[in-house]
């Protein structure tokens, strides 16, 4: 039978031609809701002068702060920030491995209890904002960089566990089958096939997560969890903009250096 326009359902054509209009209405609705709902407080009068002073501070940074031997200067606090990020990422990478095996879905059953529960736990960990974790750990161990380390290491489990479990799901199973067919037991399969296959990818994700941890370690200090964030928030509150300028420069240089180092290492790995 020949298909003609007559026996084709017309509403379908109509829908095809005009459904973009529906999207326009939806998008317009979302934006009018978004703009209408926010009451813009208006820009305070000092905005212009404050931004001018910030710019001036950025152009004339307080160079004396870079190193003054007190242990509270920029270079030692940058080092402390890096130490928080490093220790936090290292601990979380170790803890993430069992979580990854828990959450990885290795067969195609539609409802997988073990993997499903692991994924829910990882999502729950991810939703806890890092600064809330930092404040909770400050309760436990007092203000300082140790609380920052704990916050970074717990928060990172959420993301590293997810990435690790996804790479376990997608890994090449050839080596595992080879060991199994040669009569290897489970622990031999794990140590001789699974872990060596997955190791470079785990390291690569850990490095990537370290880049993120450096950024978060530099702001955790704003709530009192150590690192460069503490003097930064003080400098902003006391409006000493040349101090803000030098700290911003320090953070920018630190992040750029770590990013390029980690990128180079990751390229070598894969």
């Amino acid at each position: 039978m020949q298909t003609t326009l007559e026996n084709h359902p017309l509403p379908h054509l109509f829908w095809r031609r005009w459904h973009w209009l529906l999207w326009v209405v939806v998008v317009a609705g979302v934006y009018s809701w978004a703009i209408g709902g926010l009451h813009f407080t208006g820009i305070q009068e000092s905005a212009g002068s404050v931004s001018r002073s910030i710019l001036k501070g950025l152009l004339h940074p307080d160079w004396a702060y870079v190193y003054n031997g007190s242990g509270e200067d920029l270079s030692s606090l940058i080092l402390q920030t890096l130490a928080i990020a490093f220790l936090g990422t290292f601990v979380s990478a170790l803890i993430s491995v069992p979580f990854a095996f828990w959450a990885a879905r290795t067969d195609q059953h539609w409802a997988h209890l073990r993997s499903g529960s692991g994924k829910v736990v990882l999502t729950l960990i991810r939703t806890f904002p890092e600064i809330v974790l930092a404040i909770m750990f400050i309760k436990a161990v007092g203000p300082g960089s140790y609380a920052g380390v704990l916050a970074v290491s717990i928060h990172s489990i959420g993301m590293l566990g997810k990435l690790f479990s996804e790479s376990l799901e997608n890994m090449d199973r050839g080596a595992e089958e080879a060991i199994r067919s040669a009569g290897g037991n489970r622990s031999e399969i794990l140590t001789l096939a699974t872990l060596p296959t997955i190791f470079p990818e785990f390291i690569s994700y850990t490095l990537y997560r370290f880049e993120i941890a450096v950024r978060s370690a530099s702001i955790l200090g704003m709530v009192g969890a150590g690192g460069i964030g503490t003097p930064l928030i003080f400098a902003i509150q006391t409006r000493s903009w040349s101090r803000v300028g030098i700290i911003l420069l320090g953070i920018i240089v630190m992040v750029l250096a770590i990013d390029s180092l980690s990128e180079r290492l990751r390229k070598k790995l894969i």
């Binding site: 926010l38 813009f40 407080t41 820009i43 902003i236």
Partner: peptide, 8 residues
Amino acid sequence: AIFGIGST
């Protein structure tokens, strides 16, 4: 610090 406290 620039725009004041609020959603702006």
